[in-house]
Design a protein around this nucleic acid. Structure first.
Length: 865
RNA sequence: GGGGACGUGGCGGAACUGGUAGACGCGCCGGACUUAAAAUCCGUUGAUUUCGGUCGUCCGGGUUCGAUUCCCGGCGUCCCCA
């Protein structure tokens, strides 16, 4: 009997799987009538090292993949690298390493680490998004979108990250700062490439309805992100001479047409064309507009910034009440790219408008009356009323509720030709230009004569030049001596390549399709994609709930419309897993210290910590996501070294529900290791060589064991299907405790035979979680071939059924005893048995039974007084 | 401010559609083995108790024979949006 040695066992089995080629995906034509199953975890950025978050993410995907394989599916479980992006360029700037070398070195290092994890991945399909083959195909479909009008260029105000010197999408601006650099974002005008995601806004909302295996939370977040609202575009006519270009009036957009009679001013965005033209004539306007340009361009920035305005002196007429005139202001809180860049302000019923009105002393005129308020006395102070109510002070709208009033106003404005009902979205077109080197070059050429000319397909891929410099900020492609100088493909004149590269979110918006045939001559092999897509189970962090997952859904739909593939939704099932966290520690100097230099001492129910070196006191801090800055990181390699890969995989899945954060603890991983060890001991205690099978169903203890094994099959199958890995693992532990109660030492032939069958089941059930251990165990009991190729055990319903039930008996809702009855016994019989029970009878003394409730196989409740 | 999720022993967490609250693990405590420690193995472990019980799933109400689960009102934590 030898102690289980993961260091010897784990590499051996990784090699055995590799040599047998068990994870090479079958071509659709070889799969026969096997159903397909595509499991995908969000591919990693090649930072250089894997962390515990990767371990958890890929372990979960591996459980699903191995389980589905065992259940007879033809499984696709690939791996690749999201390899373009800023960190490679940062490394180049900081350390003088070329981004390409840095990235591929990191990939090599991480591939080795991931292979240690024993994942059931088909490595033959691996690619990186920075492979010219991959981004060349990306350039090809980009051009097909360009041809279809889904790509365009426009000058716009953009979020400029002054540190990374690049443009950020609104999604990449968090609290006014760049999501990667953390620098305060500025607004700039720049000509940019955009993808027309807004064309798909409705489709992307409708599509959410069909994604039943997505978390509701993510669907809600996407819906809110798209932010569809119904409203009205209407034109206000100027009182005096209309400014040049505005003869038709000033068009505003509102989602609250019901409050039109409460309007007391108009406000336009600082970058509205009218602001521009006024600024040319008036230095005060120009100065104000310039001031507004400072600060972030995101909605949240504008919302939190102090409201500022400038009266233009212009006045417009109220469209429904010609006797009213409204002043036109420029307001820093009005967004040019939402609606028309102009609003009417109704201070009584909009908080921003109210803040603005109070600051500049504009009228506040309530037109919606909350239920129970008196129209004579109702007024609005510093808080706008935005709730439901009855419209008043509003001419022909008086007495309507706000929804009915919206409809009436839209009808009236449309009939008068003053405007039109319209739907607008919070979602903007996706700005994909990045002024960076380490990204996919946008495959177009700018020609003086011909304009923007797509690169002919036979000249793709446009490959990044290797000889670039990173000694200065800015785009190295722009200052490369020769790369961008080309001749126009159309007229042959001297022309220039586009030097912008694509946002890396483009790279990750179609990789799942490329995996279905990564060597296809076209971007996507339609037959392979038709077979494999959609991804049956996608697994990744919830931080991608809007950005990546929305872009991928959009690109899939856009590619469908170009005929590149046939599915509309890329991911049929989505699971968002929680993070790996750890306690934080601060040393005597207040600095963060690593867990491995701290000793935590338990004293009864409290804990304290000291430095391992010197014993100085350590403050135990909050439990937070593992991060280098807080130093609360545990390196996966160290854990693999100490406890083995299986124990690490098991622990990250056992201690918390997978969608929640898991707290890494030493004790926890030791518990997982103990389980690995005990499982092995149980297998290793069986007699060597084949046990002559004997019938054992007549021996009660043997029968109980095999019954427990069959119940375990059911429980574990359900747990994996429902992504309740922690519950499933608990059932495995429970079963191990049962089988330990019937040790092999000194057992009868019946027990040994039952153990042999139960262990055969156990080996196959633990295989998705601890695959190396399972192989060793399978081998030890003489299983056929490798357990990775063994079918999932089949549940025998008769053995799994429980024929006796222990029913608790309650009297007036309090548990007073229990009775053992045959399963499924009728209510009358159960009642009789319960009332006859000695303990129950004792509690009923002096009471009259009023009612007995029997829930079959569950409980008995006696009502008595 | 709007929307959502959550709140259970010393800790992570179980409890499927209302039906024995605390599965499983960690920790603690006790025991075996050991010269000793580690490792390993075995056992106890919600609180309280006059050993009959009583109390107990954030707090206060409600529905029900029965509520961690459903409803109403608070408090707190977290996430998303503004």
């Amino acid at each position: 009997m030898a102690r289980y040695n993961p260091k010897e066992s784990e590499p051996r089995w990784v090699k055995a799987w590799d040599q047998a080629g068990v994870f090479t995906t079958k071509a659709p034509s070889d799969a026969g009538d096997q159903p397909k199953y595509y499991v995908l975890e969000m591919f990693p950025y090649p930072s250089g090292r894997i962390h515990m978050g990767h371990v958890r993410n890929y372990a979960m995907g591996d459980v699903v993949a191995r389980f589905k394989r065992a259940r007879g599916y033809n499984v696709l479980h690939p791996m690749g690298w999201d390899a373009f992006g800023m960190p490679a360029e940062n490394a180049a700037m900081e350390r003088g390493i070329h981004p390409k070398g840095w990235t591929y070195d990191n990939i090599a290092a991480m591939r080795e680490q991931l292979k240690l994890l024993g994942l059931s991945i088909d490595w033959s399909r691996e690619f990186a998004t920075c492979d010219p083959d991959y981004y060349g195909h990306q350039q090809a479909w980009f051009l097909s979108l360009l041809q279809k009008g889904l790509v365009y260029r426009k000058e716009g105000v953009v979020n400029w990250d002054p540190v990374d010197m690049t443009v950020l999408a609104n999604e990449q601006v968090i609290d006014g700062r760049g999501w990667r650099s953390g620098a305060v974002v500025e607004k700039r005008k720049l000509t940019q490439w955009f993808l027309r995601i807004t064309d798909y806004a409705d489709a992307l909302i409708e599509g959410l309805g069909g994604l039943e295996r997505w978390p509701d939370k993510v669907r809600t977040m996407q819906e809110n992100w798209i932010g569809r609202s119904k409203g009205l575009r209407l034109r206000f006519q100027f009182m005096d001479q209309a400014p040049t270009g505005f003869d038709v009036g000033l068009e505003v957009y509102t989602t609250r047409p019901d409050t039109l009679f409460g309007a007391s001013f108009l406000a336009i965005a600082p970058d509205h064309p009218l602001s521009d033209s006024l600024a040319k004539a008036d230095p005060a306007v120009a100065a104000f507009v310039a001031e507004c340009r400072k600060g972030g361009a995101s909605g949240a920035d504008i919302e939190t910034a102090e409201k500022k305005g400038l009266d233009t002196g212009l006045c417009v007429r109220h469209p429904l009440d010609p006797s009213q005139t409204l002043p036109v202001w420029i307001g820093n809180f009005v967004l040019m790219d939402y609606g028309t860049g102009a609003i009417f302000g109704c201070p009584a019923h909009d908080q921003r408008d109210l803040d603005f009105a109070r600051k500049y002393d504009l009228k506040v005129h309530p037109v919606v009356l909350p239920a129970g308020e008196n129209p004579e006395t109702f007024s609005v102070g510093l808080e706008a009323y935005t709730g439901p109510g009855t419209v008043f002070n509003s001419s022909f709208l008086d007495g309507l509720d706000i929804e009915a009033a919206k409809v009436r106003v839209i009808d009236q404005i449309e009939a008068a030709g003053q405007g039109k009902g319209a739907t607008v979205y919070r979602l903007r077109d996706w700005g994909v230009s990045r002024q960076r080197y380490w990204g996919c070059p946008i495959p177009v050429i700018h020609c003086q004569a011909c304009g923007v000319v797509p690169v002919p397909r036979d000249q793709l891929p446009i490959i990044l030049p290797d000889d670039v410099t990173f000694d200065r900020p800015g785009n190295p492609l722009l200052r490369h001596p020769t790369w961008r100088h080309v001749s126009c493909p159309t007229c042959g004149a001297a022309a220039e390549r586009e030097t912008d590269t694509l946002d890396t979110f483009v790279d990750s918006s179609w990789y799942f399709a490329r995996f279905t045939d990564p060597t296809a001559a076209e971007p996507i092999n339609k037959a392979a994609a038709d077979y494999w897509l959609p991804v049956d189970q996608y697994i990744g962090g919830v931080e991608h709930a809007v950005l990546h997952l929305l872009y991928a859904r959009f690109v899939t739909r856009a590619l469908k419309d170009t005929g590149a593939l046939d599915v509309a939704e890329p991911f049929a099932g989505l699971f968002t897993q929680g993070m790996v966290t750890h306690e934080t520690y601060r040393g005597p100097d207040g600095q963060w210290v690593e867990p491995q230099s701290v000793e935590v001492i338990a004293e009864g129910n409290t804990r304290r910590a000291v430095m391992l070196d010197g014993g100085a006191p350590v403050v135990i801090g909050d439990i937070e996501k593992m991060s280098k800055s807080k130093k609360n990181v545990v390196a996966p390699e160290d854990i693999f070294d100490a406890y083995g890969v299986d124990a690490a995989r098991l622990f990250v899945m056992s201690d918390s529900p997978p969608e929640r954060d898991v707290q890494w603890t030493n004790g926890g991983v030791e518990g997982a290791w103990r389980f690995v060890h005990r499982v092995w001991t149980e297998f290793d205690s069986q007699p060597e060589g084949a046990v002559a099978p004997v019938p054992y169903l007549q021996e009660p203890r043997a029968l109980d064991l095999i019954k427990a094994a069959h119940r375990l099959i059911g429980a574990l199958t359900d747990s994996i299907e429902a992504f309740r890995f922690n519950g499933g693992i608990a059932k495995l532990y429970e079963f191990l405790n049962i089988i330990k109660g019937l040790p092999a030492a000194g057992a009868t032939p019946e027990i040994l035979s039952a153990r042999r069958d139960a262990l055969s089941i156990l080996a196959r059930l633990v295989a998705p979680f601890t695959p190396h251990l399972a192989e060793a165990c399978w081998e030890r009991i003489g299983g056929e071939g490798m357990v990775v190729n063994a079918p999932w055990p089949v549940l025998d319903p008769e053995l799994a059924a429980d024929d006796q039930r222990i029913l608790p008996v309650q009297i007036n809702g309090k548990r007073r005893g229990e009775v053992t009855v045959p399963a499924g016994l009728g209510q009358a019989e159960v009642e009789q048995i319960a009332l006859a029970d000695e303990g129950v009878a004792r509690h009923l003394e002096g009471l009259t039974v009023r009612k007995v409730i029997v829930v079959t196989d569950r409980i008995v409740n006696i009502v008595a007084n």
